[in-house]
Design a protein around this nucleic acid. Structure first.
Lengths: 195, 195, 195, 195
DNA sequence: TATGAATGAGGCTTCATTCAT
DNA sequence: AATGAATGAAGCCTCATTCAT
């Protein structure tokens, strides 16, 4: 009581950092990292630019923090994968889990897909690439023939593509995700059985 | 003689416009459109910024001109596709030709893949998207089931991915391209035969 | 006990003001007043910037307080000088005492020597300049010829220079101080005896 | 004629670089390097900040260029000194020439004297210090006793001090310069004859 | 006695663009 | 066909300072 008058100001206390991340990710994904200015982010939050600098030392630190927070599930997934036998079942399950992880960090992945040039120059670029190669190494058997290898890479890429390119196809989102998953699993399975 | 002394100056005559495009595309692909300044382009060419403005009215015009010049083969491909019957053979041939077209305009596609956010805001963004949807409409049968549709989209995307993601896999480039093509054709074929 | 565990925290009690002055003077002398930020001072003390404002109303107040604390011996010296007869003995003794006073406030003088432009704009600038002129008026006889006057000014300046410029000459510091003092006394003595 | 209407605009063509240097040195000397903003310099010249950047890549480059341009006479002086025998006559002549060189670059030296902290951090700091040590090595005999060495250093410093500290003593500037020179020469001479 | 959060002003720098020559 | 000089807008970042707690 006496406190409940203004909900919007209430929520503002103590979670500014989080709010900055949210708005930043939204704008980065929509317009690109370079085209999004700190002024813009600050204005949307009704705060001064200087306030951003209280919470993050640089513009880059904002996006790095997003990476660190949002890619954790994928890191864990890769670690899980590394400890499993490289069997077909593992690969299928990995694809299944990856599909779910992607859905959870959709805005970040949209950002990454659309700003690869930027990401590459960022300090996270390298670390992320390594992670993806880790993923590939679990799913791709380096002794298999080339076509099988391509199938596996394609499976991963199909999941990515599924998030964005498929947007224009009209269908229930959940149904679409399942269709995409199905195709990816087929690709992995075919790769396993020999071309 | 008196003219023959300096070969490099010779070649420079009259093709500055072309040289600007070459350097620009290289830098745009490498660092992104926003991060590449006209100063940088000019310096690489050993020319002043103002010289660029003699050949192009704006920075955007440089990239637009690249699009127009380099996507022509793909436009023609789509037009060809539209006139063919939507048979399996057509689709397979389309995939084959698309693979070749991509290889021809690799730097541009690398640029587009890595700067989607930028491209979307550029005036060519929409027009290009429409073209790609045209491509999709030839290959994807809207009455087929969802999985079949995903397979077709995935085929196209596999070709794209093939150009960049596969770079780290060690194999002869031409062999790789063929393996990628094989997988794409399989996807289209499977889609046609029913999931 | 419960209090005795951490010696470093103990010492910190109640003398934060002093610690701020110490760190500030060190940094001001090293990097200059303008280039030294309150953030930097606070970080070195492991305190927040706001804490500085509990002890000092402004950044300027920090340096003003240093002046007031550290130039007291020199003020007293000048007052002493004013009450003595303007004899050669007085002048020699003044130079001797000044040499000792300078050694006691070395960091402050180093700061002043290296940041004259800043000091001039600070509120203490004028007051300090007046003090130095007071010093000069004791030692310089306005009726003497110009060369004699220059000798006296030079004597004072030699003492200053001795603190910094001589650093690179290798010799025992105390011996150096004495050599400097000797030269200064000679200058004053020569001035007194007529050029 | 037809050209002679507006002298101030006329002079502006083609010598902007020089004008920037002039105004910059004046302001740097008056207020210090850090406290002088590029905005201020630009405003005084009735130009935009960006214009400064056409002529100098950074703020630091402005002052570095001033150093390079204005310390040339002193560099030459040192080189001359190095080639002479280290006789008393040489030392006296060096002091005489140095006095003249200082008068020629008075504003720069005023700047340096008053912004030592800044100069030290600048890229020229080290190079300048080395030059001054070169000067010292010509005039100071490392085998002489300490007092003699101090006398020589003091001679140089007296010349510096003469430019600024003596300002308040009322006398004809040229007479003052000569008095200062006289004292410096006396110091060098005494040093040479043994303390 | 101090912190956490924020502000407003201003710093240096870069950019795309223009225009007279 | 190209340069030299300049502009206006905007970018990122840092600073001294404030105030409620």
């Amino acid at each position: 009581m006496g406190d409940t008058m203004d909900g919007s100001k209430q929520q503002r206390r103590g979670n500014t950092r989080q709010r900055i991340q949210d708005v930043a990710l939204e704008l980065f994904a929509e317009q690109g990292y370079e085209k999004t200015s700190l002024r813009e982010i600050a204005e949307r939050l009704d705060v001064t630019k200087a306030a951003l600098y209280y919470h993050f030392k640089t513009k880059e630190e904002i996006i790095v923090s997003l990476f660190e927070d949002l890619t954790r599930p994928i890191n864990e997934l890769i670690e899980w994968g590394r400890e499993q036998p490289h069997s077909l079942e593992t690969k299928q399950e990995l694809v299944r889990r990856y599909s779910r992880a992607l859905a959870g960090a959709a805005p970040l992945f949209r950002f990454m897909q659309e700003n690869q040039a930027t990401v590459r120059e960022l300090s996270i670029g390298e670390s992320f690439k390594n992670r993806m190669l880790g993923m590939r190494d679990i799913i791709v058997d380096p002794d298999a023939d080339l076509v099988a290898q391509v199938r596996c890479v394609s499976a991963l890429f199909t999941l990515h593509a599924g998030m964005f390119v498929m947007q224009d196809i009209e269908a229930d989102p959940e149904e679409k995700r399942e269709a995409v998953l199905q195709v990816a699993i087929d690709l992995v399975t075919q790769a396993h059985q020999g071309s």
